[in-house]
Design a protein around this nucleic acid. Sequence first.
DNA 1: GCTGGCACTCGGTAACCTTGAGTGCCAGAC
DNA 2: GTCTGGCACTCAAGGTTACCGAGTGCCAGC
Lengths: 352, 352
Amino acid sequence: MLDERKAAILRAVVECHIRTAQPVSSAYVAQLGELSVSPATVRNEMAVLEQEGYLFQPHSSAGRVPTDKGYRFFVDSLSGPTPLGPDQAELVRMFFDRTHGELERTLSETSSLLSRLTDYAAVVVAPSAPDPARVRSLQLVQLSPHLCLAVAVLANGTVERRSLESMADMTEAQVERAAAAAAAFLVGSTVDRPGRPAPTGDPYADSLAQAAVDGLRDLGDEDNQAPVFVGGAARMAAAFEAVTTIRTVLGILEQQFVLVSLLKDVLDRGLTVAIGAEHGLVQLAECSVVVAPYEVDGQRAGTVGVLGPTRMHYDQALAAVAVVSKKLGRVLSDGEPVRPGGRDDDRQRSAG
Amino acid sequence: MLDERKAAILRAVVECHIRTAQPVSSAYVAQLGELSVSPATVRNEMAVLEQEGYLFQPHSSAGRVPTDKGYRFFVDSLSGPTPLGPDQAELVRMFFDRTHGELERTLSETSSLLSRLTDYAAVVVAPSAPDPARVRSLQLVQLSPHLCLAVAVLANGTVERRSLESMADMTEAQVERAAAAAAAFLVGSTVDRPGRPAPTGDPYADSLAQAAVDGLRDLGDEDNQAPVFVGGAARMAAAFEAVTTIRTVLGILEQQFVLVSLLKDVLDRGLTVAIGAEHGLVQLAECSVVVAPYEVDGQRAGTVGVLGPTRMHYDQALAAVAVVSKKLGRVLSDGEPVRPGGRDDDRQRSAG
DNA sequence: GCTGGCACTCGGTAACCTTGAGTGCCAGAC
DNA sequence: GTCTGGCACTCAAGGTTACCGAGTGCCAGC
């Protein structure tokens, strides 16, 4: 589609613009020396590239700036994964060596890590409950005469809470009976087990037990909102000039629901990088997203991602996201906790 | 200290500058009509106020802007709590009517609410565990041969997790024995109960049980970090002009530890409002903080606060923080869950 | 097809002027 | 003594003009 020389020029323009945030001149590209041609030749090629929509000229006497299409070409032509820089690899190693358990905290700190690695905002979507989720224990805690809290510990260590309100006041004994019934029904089984707890003889206890079981059933549902952890939102303030842009982007980062669907959407379309308008969100037209799913126990569980300006360092972001998603998945996998001093290597073998 | 006329002028300047973010002229104050004097007189008074450090003149032909000291005088002279506006009161009522249980979620949404009420960033510090914390149930969940998760449900519905690593691999039976021992020791008691679980006959199980008990003991410790929920950080982007300021402030908002100590510090000094440099944080010199503790079951449990520019709407912020802290405390109190359609009134009776 | 040369464009910067909001001060009135 | 109107002064903001130079587009020649 693009001959080799045009491609090289385009790549040079993108790389330079990512670094400098300035329009790139033909003189700069020529002086690079990669292809031994004069600025005039480069100019001619650049004019063509502009006609074809890869470049854009802010005004008639300025250099060229890549369009979204230009970035897309650049990203697609990135040759294989760049390795992480040594300091960054060190950061990652240190982080995952001392991390274990405490799901929320791990996820939250992972988002900070990813943000520090890339210098953009990072997003980590919590693992959806393994499907189907096996219940390890179920408790009912009475908070007030008509308010109970159902606390379920799942096999993977996740803790789920549901508050249950009853119309009538409950006695302690009733709550205990309900808890026993609900636990007998659900513990050792999965949350979506069909049927209902065995009756206790007390209709109030029965309905409470049923409420607890019902409350947990939605865990399997698709639309059950997975929590999101955002790290380094402040770094977006440095990435943009216009205050209004900053405000918009920060606003989006606070809307967990929007974030989740954004990442999900990108992944569903089989993308790893969504540039500018490629994802649906108009408000993020000046942003790109780099995402990767992570696997827990061999299943896709959640997503990590980086949100930056369209002129982001894609290679570094891709590398960071790849490494973090892999390591995070491993840390969260049951059978494979962090092995301090273990022999895990960061490099991906083969896999072109 | 300030005669009544100077005080009136100062108040007028502060109010106007909060609204307009512009230097305030003598003509404006005179034309207000509150005190029937000419601009020239106002000018003379303003010159004195500047000498005394209440006002500041950006340049010699500009109006006056309040200094931190000026704001301090203004805040101290606010007469009693302003009531919330009707729409805002409605927001608050709706929010707390449909809120119950689910601690983290409540806190997180409360921070959003407070941010929406004030249009600044809001901070909610989670309640510190009631002191001493009573344990309702204790479970050990084995995640891998040498990694366990201790899950404790406290009497108030809080769930605490601690991951426990053992050198040697543990069998399921050992974990069960340890869980039984630890539960027998702690359930029904408080986390700081002295002594140790009864021995099980298996040294490995004993040490695991001990580890679980030890792990929870730090709950009572002072330095145990209370989680923080920040809402509406994006609104800070609108409150300031300079991008660097925005970045700094957002950076602070991401450092939970700094936030907690900031709020704690302000409260410890007996303040409700900290203006500009009054709190220790140089980076937040352009910000003010409005805080209020909330009480759960009659004890100070956590803090809510608002972070805005020094020229914030103090009256509204104070009102919002007061109402939200009171309502939040009530919702979180054991004996007193939200009573839908109940007879709770928002007005503070007497209490001058 | 590439290149050097050249005219042209146009954003950015600096110098300059003008405007007007606002002050400080003073002399006179109450 | 205190207030006030008047007046000169200051200085940021905005507009105009001129200039510079980076960068392009095009063309003629190699």
